[in-house]
Design a protein around this nucleic acid. Structure first.
Lengths: 243, 243
DNA sequence: CGCGGCTTTGATGTTCATCAAGTAAAGTGG
DNA sequence: CCACTTTACTTGATGAACATCAAAGCCGCG
């Protein structure tokens, strides 16, 4: 079933529902392939979109899991408060990565918090409905499983990468992560504070700052507050690999 | 549908198949709840059991994923070779935790290696068959998803715990992990080498040894080669929490 | 019996956290 | 809008935590 073809069929069959905003949502590529047209239009009416400003908390650790939440626009961080009260950042997610995926099939409550680090929009669907869909539509369930698996794979692999590096390598890693994976360009505004970088790579804020300053002195990057420009990409990549 | 009830029905309907070893396999509690009796007996004939000695490699990083592999007996480690050729241990799995779960729905090849650290037995079923079952039986797929989600949750949470601790806390963590979670008693034979502990907690072999020696001198543990006895449980737990 | 891998301890230097102190930026209440 | 408070950022100095290097004993195995 080809994507474009499906859309054309749907439009032909439901001409009066083509203005449902789900039509243009990229989420559709996940759902639609194995969901009937009627089911999709149902979802379209049930789903709720929510807007968050940078800094807003989307999910708090311990919240009951009621909705299946998908990130439509923006950028978020997953974090957890450790026993001694300090925050640890687990990962960052952009659209197409799921948000409420860890835990949702294994727990009643969220084990992590999710916070918008850029203005974001989520699409929320009652979890019961999604679970029902999964129970009645195995292809949909398989798709979901693949997504969950991909997302957690990334988290595990990324953590391993960070674990084996020293301070400088970790800083290079996160700079290149934002540059390559999130923004796709050499200069960008860091969406997080120095402290949050520290919480992610497991070092202190002071040493994050010191290392950024070193990179600046060594003319590897330029820093204007939160704005970062990678000047010497090659060297930064060398540092990422070999400290 | 109650477990015992199902079994009785099955025995009544298929009296000639009751000696299939799957009858007594704990794997059944996962499959059987939502799998028809005929399907179960089919699986019973298709599945392959494989035995491994301590040290044997069960899965090599990069292997094509052909089978769905479940750990029936024993203990294994998941590990990955980093870019600089060093091994990093991701987690340990005992029966009821899946083995081939990470990656199997998101990749063609294993991204991790799996090695027996105690004599182990796996139950292997062709992945195609399991995927077919998942596609045709959404409840089964949901069950699978829950298991995958639980297992990866543990890995992520455990890694966070380790990350926030210092050397002594990490050693205490892994000793208590084996004591509480794996063996359920205060004295046990360490199934892994000092180097492997280092590969798991992300420190050097020498410092692992030094810390174990310190714990011995402080009369927190007793060491006879690979045999460990936890003498001062309370203090070890304090070290785990507060370094 | 000799080789390689695992274990152990000590000495040394590097990396990193902590403490301290100050500046800049951003939010808050009158 | 300004004084005030808080939070983020920055740098330096110091000591603690950890890696590295070196050397030697131990054990299993071909």
């Amino acid at each position: 079933m080809v994507f474009l073809g499906s859309k054309m069929i749907e439009q032909a069959m439901n001409p009066d529902k083509t203005n449902c905003s789900c039509e243009n949502c990229l989420l559709k590529s996940l759902f639609f392939t194995h969901i009937s047209i009627d089911a999709l239009t149902d979802i379209c009416e049930i789903k709720q979109e929510r807007e968050y400003n940078k800094g807003d908390i989307i999910i708090s650790e311990g919240d009951k899991i009621k909705d299946f939440i998908y990130l439509k626009e923006g950028l978020v961080k997953l974090s957890k408060k450790s026993a001694d009260g300090k925050d640890q950042i687990i990962s960052f997610s952009k659209p197409f990565d799921f948000v409420s995926l860890l835990s949702i099939f294994s727990s009643e409550e969220y084990k992590y918090s999710v916070t918008a680090i850029e203005d974001s929009v989520t699409c929320n669907i009652a979890l019961d409905i999604v679970k029902n869909m999964a129970q009645n539509n195995a292809m949909f369930a398989m798709n979901l499983m693949t997504r969950v698996s991909e997302a957690t794979d990334h988290i595990v692999l990324d953590n391993l990468e960070i674990k084996r590096k020293h301070l400088r390598g970790r800083i290079a890693h996160i700079l290149l992560y934002f540059s390559d994976h999130i923004y796709g360009r050499n200069e960008f505004e860091l969406p997080i504070s120095r402290r949050e970088i520290a919480e992610y790579i497991g070092m202190t804020t002071e040493n994050v700052i010191r290392t950024l300053s070193e990179f600046r002195k060594d003319k590897i990057i330029k820093i204007y507050g939160k704005d970062i420009e990678i000047v010497d990409l090659k060297r930064l990549k060398t540092i990422r690999e070999h400290g």
